[in-house]
Design a protein around this nucleic acid. Structure first.
Lengths: 159, 159
DNA sequence: GGCTAAAGATTAGCTTGCTAAATAAATTCT
DNA sequence: AGAATTTATTTAGCAAGCTAATCTTTAGCC
C-alpha cells in the first residue's frame, strides 16, 4: 500500500466500473445542487419538479400528478402539503367526483412559474454542458435499458 | 388531444430527452429494487453498501468510511447506529486518538458478509444485463462528465 | 505551557422517498 | 337496491439524504 495515496484517489479507483455507484452519486449530487440553488426561490428539487408538472397542466388530480412524476401518492401528497402551505398551489375539490382534489397554481405562483422554468432549464443545460447530443442520447438510452432490467427483475420476482 | 392515450404514454413522451429525470428515476428504482430484495437479509441498500465498505477494510474510522461512500458524516453515523443495533457491526474506540471510533464487523456478520457480497454482485449483474461493456463504459464516462459539470458549477458559485 | 484552530463524532431537525393501513366516494356485480 | 370492489386521498411511521450546531479531543502556534 502506498501511504501517499489520498482517500480521494482510493475512492476513484474503487468506483471504477461501478455503474450502480455512479448513478446513485450523480442523483444525490443533482438533488443537492438543485436544492442549493433553488433555495432563493423558496423551493427544493422535489417541489420545483411538482410546480413544473402542475404548470404544464393545471387541474390534474393528485394521483395523476403522482403518476406523471413517477412517485407514490403519499409522497406527492406531502410535497403538495408543503407547496400549499407556502402559498404556491391550491387544491380544489372536483365537483363530479368528490374523491378527487384538483391542483392549481395560485395567482402569485403563476407569476413565478416562468422563473422556475428558466431556472430548471439552466440547470439542465449546465448538467450536460460540453457533451455532444449523440452521447447524451446514447446515455439516456442505456439508462432506460437499465431501468427496464430492474422492472423486469421485480416483475419476475412477483411471479 | 387523443383521449385514448394512457397516462403512461404521456409520461414516456414527456420524459424523452430529459436526462435529469432519467437519472433520478433510475436511482430511485435502483434503491427500491435493492431494498425490496435485501429485506430477507435484514438490510437496506444504504446498510448493505456500508457493510461492503466495512468488510473491504475493517477498522476504518467513521469519517473515512463516510468519505469512501461519498456521504456526510451524520448520515454515516445514523446508518452505523442501525447496523450496530442490529448486531452487524461494532464500534471500538481507537487508543491513539480518542476522538475516533473504528468500525468492525461482528463475528456473526462476518459469516454473512460473503452472502451480502454475492447478493450485491447479482443485482449489479442484473442491472447491466444485455448491455455491451463498451456501452457501459461510455455511459459511465458520461455520468462522470455530468457529475464534474455539477461540481464545477458549485465551485464557481462559491467564488 | 497555554491558547486557538481543526478534526471526529454526535445531536437535532428538515426533506423526501417508501410501505401499510385507514377513510370516503364511486363503480361494478348480482 | 345492496354488497363488494376499486379508486383517491390521507395518516402514520420508517429510512436515508442533507445542513447547522455542539462536544470532545487533538494538533498547531506563540
Amino acid at each position: 500500500m502506498d501511504p501517499h495515496r489520498t482517500a480521494t484517489q482510493e475512492r476513484v479507483d474503487e468506483r471504477s466500473g461501478d455503474m450502480l455507484r455512479a448513478v446513485m452519486l450523480l442523483a444525490r449530487t443533482l438533488r443537492k445542487t438543485f436544492d442549493h440553488r433553488a433555495k432563493s426561490l423558496g423551493l427544493t428539487f422535489a417541489r420545483a419538479q411538482a410546480m413544473l408538472a402542475i404548470a404544464r397542466q393545471e387541474g390534474m388530480s393528485q394521483s395523476h400528478l403522482a403518476e406523471t412524476l413517477d412517485i407514490e401518492a403519499p409522497t406527492m401528497n406531502r410535497t403538495l402539503d408543503g407547496l400549499e402551505e407556502a402559498g404556491f398551489i391550491e387544491r380544489r375539490p372536483q365537483p363530479h367526483d368528490r374523491r378527487v382534489r384538483q391542483v392549481f397554481l395560485t395567482g402569485r405562483s403563476r407569476a413565478h412559474a416562468e422563473e422556475i422554468f428558466d431556472f430548471s432549464t439552466t440547470l439542465r443545460a449546465e448538467l450536460v454542458r460540453g457533451i455532444p447530443p449523440e452521447e447524451l442520447a446514447a446515455t439516456e438510452a442505456t439508462l432506460q435499458k437499465m431501468h427496464a432490467n430492474l422492472q423486469r427483475m421485480t416483475a419476475n420476482a412477483k411471479g
